[in-house]
Design a protein around this nucleic acid. Structure first.
Lengths: 138, 138
DNA sequence: AAACAATTGCAAATAAGTTGCATTTAGATT
DNA sequence: AATCTAAATGCAACTTATTTGCAATTGTTT
């Protein structure tokens, strides 16, 4: 598996460094979307500078390894772009649950056909919001 | 129409002030999503403090008058929550185009049925991204 | 008109993310 | 294996968006 991560870096023209492997590992272990601060905490022992984390996240996003997720929180969250899915976010406590259903290709097609300014969709963001069961009880 | 805006404030328990009316007017004229800075510029003559704008946007969002739109830009955008629609955003120049199609109720239903942590969806965010025709030519 | 809470302005703080530059390191070259 | 170079990292300082505390002002109710 460490092999996989190495290759993922090489394939994208990145050098294989301990920090990058560690960051990728965070993503492959925690499947929830995470922000820079979270990774920073996870890698506390390794004493990784948070600037490096920001820079790494940005280049991974540009390379398409990671994708940005809009959870309407105060910072930017990312997750592995491997398998397509979306999220439900609790507007009370921030809890995030993933889900697979997504039939936006049909919608995108329809939208593009009637758009005067665009002729292709490259990606989309879709998140659902609600109050989770736990918070409902309060 | 100024009446409408006044009532919108009263209905929500807000006092009717010139600043609030001016902010609401920006939203009812420009139908594009806007951020605090944009409003600040629009109301330059009125010398409204930008802090007031931030506070007003937040309370309008809480009241449900405005809703937040995630355009993956560097600041938070809002628009009137009146008529439901979504956007296509150019990842190059930031151009925004609205669209009406949205059949997420069916999806939300399906998702909620298989969710272990939530039992209702209160809102959703859906934005499409692409490169606009103008930027494609470059 | 008085009174009171809500609204606004101002200054300062916070928090997320970025930039410039010097140092280090991975990996190609000899 | 030693050398070399561009990419990666750390550090300090900066920028930008947004928030907070507090005093002054204003809208509404009586």
């Amino acid at each position: 598996m460490k092999e996989d991560l190495s290759n993922m870096l090489k394939t994208n023209g990145f050098k294989v460094t301990p920090i990058r492997l560690a960051i990728l590992k965070v993503f492959s272990v925690d499947c929830e979307p995470v922000n820079a601060e979270f990774i920073f905490q996870k890698l506390k022992k390794e004493k990784v500078n948070i600037v490096t984390i920001y820079r790494t996240l940005t280049s991974f996003e540009n390379a398409g390894i990671l994708k940005r997720v809009d959870l309407q929180k105060d910072s930017v969250y990312y997750e592995m772009s491997g398998h397509h899915h979306h999220h439900i976010v609790c507007t009370d406590c921030g809890l995030v649950e993933g889900f697979e259903e997504c039939d936006l290709d049909y919608l995108s097609d329809k939208v593009i056909k009637s758009s005067s300014k665009f002729n292709a969709i490259t990606k989309h963001s879709l998140e659902l919001f609600g109050v989770c069961k736990k918070c409902c009880k309060k």
